[in-house]
Write a protein that binds this DNA or RNA. Structure first.
Lengths: 139, 139
DNA sequence: TTCACTTTTGAAATCATTGCAAAAATATAA
DNA sequence: TTATATTTTTGCAATGATTTCAAAAGTGAA
């Protein structure tokens, strides 16, 4: 697991001062295997930090996204969630239980897209939707 | 171009009664080469129809999405827009001018994703973001 | 310590979307 | 046709995630 010191270093490298709140939020999102919303991050850290403002969580997550440290997912149109996993991966959302699953993705998947010449692509998100294994069985 | 009669037939086949509003909204989204929001559809059709409610536009677009007739895009996290193009395609959004561009996509792009076994995938959206040709030049 | 700058905070505002119940339109039955 | 049932549309109010804003707290430099 990535140490807190390494995460701190990473923030500094990105030109972000590692305040207590920022480091805690960064750590939480990076280590989470779920895909937390701002609200979830807030609920999880408010006690640990003694005090925390939801506004800070929103601002900080936006700061990280702009710096390219984490990703914002819009796979579910009713809420935004965040992903600290920086490997090349796709996302699957179950339409029944709402679960979001990470899926591996080959590096050259952009070769599947026609017409990218002339565009400067610097972010790619592949969203798959349907039924997960368990929900498929239930039906 | 698809005729109005064909569009009407398509609604009926999907089990949707082709009211005046529904047909107009369906026609608009299907024929648009842009990716209109509910608001844009509303502004475009309110005069043509004499009267129209924004609520109707929202309800109707949802109806079409649920029936699989059109797609809802969440590529821009600040608004939802709709796409009546039913070919297999990806979307690129320019971070500078906000333009959304359709890109062709090969049919077997799912072969690039690992771990889809066991999942029933029935929708896929590939979102690319970056700078379009014009905005790249400007910089 | 003082000063300038950055970060956090909470309350209020925003705004896209939805809920709801009445009105209008349309289909069905008699 | 007329009466009745069902579907669709409408406008307004409510919702709720996200942002704005200005004040308070924290931090680093001199």
């Amino acid at each position: 697991m990535v140490s807190r010191a390494e995460l701190k270093e990473e923030l500094i490298k990105a030109g972000i001062r590692p305040s207590v709140q920022r480091l805690a939020i960064f750590e939480y999102v990076r280590r989470s295997c779920q895909h937390p919303t701002a609200e979830v991050v807030y609920e999880a850290l408010r006690d640990e930090l003694g005090s925390l403002s939801l506004t800070t969580v929103y601002n900080t997550l936006k700061l990280f996204v702009d710096a390219g440290l984490i990703m914002m997912l819009t796979i579910d149109d009713t809420f935004r969630c965040f992903d600290g996993n920086r490997s090349n991966h796709a996302h699957f959302r179950c339409n029944d239980c709402g679960k979001i699953i990470d899926l591996g993705m080959k590096k050259d998947f952009l070769s599947m897209v026609e017409g990218v010449e002339g565009l400067a692509v610097n972010e790619a998100q592949l969203y798959l939707k349907g039924l997960c294994g368990e929900c498929k069985k239930k039906k």
